[in-house]
Measured scan of single mutants.
Amino acid sequence: KWTIEEKELFEQGLAKFGRRWTKISKLIGSRTVLQVKSYARQY
């Protein structure tokens, strides 16, 4: 389950980097690239 903080970081990353999942993953820190991709599908 994603925390509110992780969701906010995901949204910031999406706005800043677009669909560059590796960069978003590094920004969040606690999620892998695969987790970020998977979350993006449901987002």
Rank of each mutant, 00 (worst) to 15 (best):
I4N: 11
E8H: 09
R41C: 09
T32F: 04
K37F: 09
K23S: 09
A40F: 15
T32N: 12
T3Q: 01
K37S: 07
L34M: 14
G18M: 08
K1L: 09
S38T: 14
K1Q: 13
E5V: 07
Q12C: 07
W2S: 07
Y43D: 08
Q35T: 02
T32D: 11
Y43C: 08
K1C: 08
A40W: 11
Q42V: 08
W21S: 01
R20D: 15
T32L: 09
K23E: 14
V33N: 04
V33S: 13
W2Q: 05
V33G: 06
V36F: 06
W2K: 05
A15G: 10
E8V: 04
Q42T: 12
I4M: 13
Q12N: 08
K26N: 12
S30I: 05
K26L: 04
I4D: 13
V36P: 00
A15H: 10
K16W: 11
R20T: 11
K37P: 02
K1R: 10
L34Q: 15
R20S: 14
W21D: 08
L9I: 11
Q12I: 07
V33Q: 06
S25M: 15
I4P: 06
V36W: 03
L27D: 02
G18L: 10
I4L: 11
F17W: 12
Q42Y: 06
T22Q: 14
L9T: 07
W21L: 13
E11R: 07
E6I: 14
K23R: 09
L27E: 08
E11D: 11
K23Y: 06
A40M: 08
E8G: 12
F17T: 03
E11N: 10
K16S: 09
Q35I: 02
A15Q: 14
L34R: 12
A40S: 06
T32C: 07
K23L: 09
E6Q: 10
K7M: 11
L9A: 11
W2A: 04
I24P: 01
W2E: 07
V36I: 07
S30D: 02
L34G: 15
A40L: 12
I4S: 09
E5I: 05
A15V: 11
W2F: 07
F10T: 05
G29L: 12
K26P: 02
L34C: 14
K26D: 09
G18I: 04
K16Q: 09
S30A: 04
T32M: 05
L14P: 04
K16T: 10
A40T: 01
R41L: 13
E11Y: 04
E8W: 00
F10V: 02
R41E: 15
K7Y: 01
G29D: 01
K16I: 04
V33I: 11
K26Q: 11
R41M: 15
K7E: 03
K37R: 13
K26I: 03
K7Q: 12
G18V: 07
L34P: 15
K23C: 11
E11H: 06
K7G: 05
T3Y: 07
I4Q: 05
Q12A: 12
L9G: 05
G13D: 06
K26T: 11
A40G: 04
Q42D: 15
K26W: 02
L27A: 09
Q35V: 01
F17N: 03
Q42W: 09
Q12K: 11
L34T: 15
K16P: 01
K26M: 05
L9Q: 07
L27V: 06
K16C: 05
E8K: 15
G29F: 12
W2N: 09
R20A: 13
K1Y: 11
V33W: 15
K7P: 00
K37C: 06
S25R: 04
V33Y: 14
R41A: 15
I28F: 02
I28G: 00
R19Y: 11
I4Y: 07
S30H: 05
I24T: 02
A15S: 11
E5Y: 00
G13V: 03
I24R: 01
L34K: 15
S25F: 14
R20Q: 14
L14Y: 08
Q35D: 09
Y43S: 13
K1N: 14
L34I: 10
I28W: 02
V33A: 14
R20L: 12
K1M: 14
S25E: 05
E8C: 06
I4T: 13
K26S: 07
R31S: 02
I4H: 05
W21N: 01
A40V: 12
E5Q: 11
L27P: 00
V33E: 11
Q42M: 10
F17S: 02
A15D: 06
A40Q: 05
R20V: 13
T22H: 13
E6N: 00
F17I: 05
E6F: 15
G18P: 03
K26Y: 02
Y39C: 03
A15P: 00
G18Q: 08
R20K: 14
G13W: 13
R31K: 09
K1S: 13
L27R: 02
Q42G: 11
Q42F: 10
K23F: 07
W2H: 06
G13H: 04
L34E: 15
L14C: 04
I24G: 01
Q12V: 10
G29A: 09
F10R: 03
Q35W: 12
E8M: 14
E5N: 11
K7T: 05
S38F: 03
E11M: 06
Y39H: 02
W21P: 04
A40H: 09
V33H: 07
Q12R: 08
K37N: 03
T3W: 13
K37G: 04
R41N: 14
I28Q: 00
E5R: 10
K16V: 05
S25V: 14
R31G: 01
Y43W: 14
T32S: 12
W2I: 01
A15W: 07
Y39S: 03
V36Q: 02
K1V: 08
S25L: 15
T22D: 15
Y43E: 12
F17M: 03
S30P: 00
A15M: 12
Q12F: 03
F10D: 02
G29Q: 13
V33K: 14
L9W: 06
I28H: 01
A40P: 00
R19C: 11
S30L: 06
V36E: 01
K26H: 07
S38I: 06
